[in-house]
């Protein structure tokens, strides 16, 4: 399967400057997508997840247009062709 991941500016050092990366996860969940992303951009997973393996407090991740905190977090299903967006949460107000 193929999933597109949008990369925020502060993580593009891990993707050679690319703002979007296509990955082929073996598991159709957000966790699987992050594993696949780590394989092509080593080091990026620990920027998104904390020491306990949970999403960091100030990062928002969307699968399609849904904030994964409203769904199943890292276990959120990611269907074929879906877009995953990683976005700093520190904005607005």
């Amino acid at each position: 399967m193929s999933v597109s991941v949008r990369i925020p500016t502060i993580l593009r050092t891990y993707t050679g400057g690319a703002s979007e990366v296509t990955v082929d996860p073996t598991e159709a969940t957000l966790s699987g997508v992050l594993d696949a992303l780590e394989a092509v951009a080593p080091g990026i997973r620990t920027r998104v997840l904390d020491d306990t393996g949970a999403l960091r407090r100030f990062v928002n991740v969307y699968v399609a247009d849904e904030d994964v905190r409203f769904t199943d977090g890292l276990a959120t299903p990611v269907p074929e062709g879906a877009q995953v967006s990683i976005i700093p949460a520190v904005a607005g107000g």
Partner: peptide
């Protein structure tokens, strides 16, 4: 504010290390 990493003054708002607010 989260991990204490410092940056020079510029158009930045989130920490490269942990996404914390600057």
């Amino acid at each position: 504010r989260e991990c204490g990493t410092s940056y020079s003054l510029g158009a930045a708002y989130a920490c490269v290390e942990c996404f914390g607010p600057l």
